[in-house]
Simulated assay, not measured.
Amino acid sequence: MKVAVWDTYVTKKDGSMMHFDIIAPEEIKDAETIYSYGRTYLTTKNQDGQLLTSKECGFCHIETVKPQWKESIEKQGYFIYEMENCN
Score class of each variant (00 low, 15 high):
K70H: 06
S16M: 08
T40G: 04
E74L: 15
E82D: 09
V3G: 01
K13L: 10
G49E: 06
Q68K: 09
L42V: 09
L51N: 10
I34A: 02
N85M: 06
L52R: 03
C86F: 08
N46K: 13
K70W: 10
T53L: 08
D14W: 12
I62Q: 06
Y81H: 14
Q47A: 01
T40H: 09
E32D: 12
H61F: 14
M1Y: 15
I73V: 06
F79K: 02
V10N: 02
R39L: 03
S36V: 02
Q68P: 01
K29W: 01
S16R: 14
H19M: 05
Q47W: 00
T53D: 08
Y78R: 02
K45T: 13
Q50G: 02
I22Q: 01
T64C: 05
K29E: 11
T44Q: 11
F20H: 00
G58S: 15
M1G: 08
K45Y: 08
M18V: 05
M1I: 08
Q50C: 13
K2A: 13
E74I: 05
K45N: 01
E32F: 01
G38N: 09
S54Q: 12
K12D: 05
G77S: 13
Y9F: 09
W69A: 00
D48H: 13
Y37T: 06
E26P: 08
Q47N: 13
D21Q: 08
L51I: 14
F59S: 00
D21F: 05
E32N: 07
Y37D: 05
E26S: 14
L52S: 04
Y35K: 15
G77V: 11
V10Y: 00
F79T: 00
K55S: 11
K70G: 05
W69R: 04
F20R: 00
N87L: 02
E27F: 03
I22W: 03
V10H: 01
T8S: 04
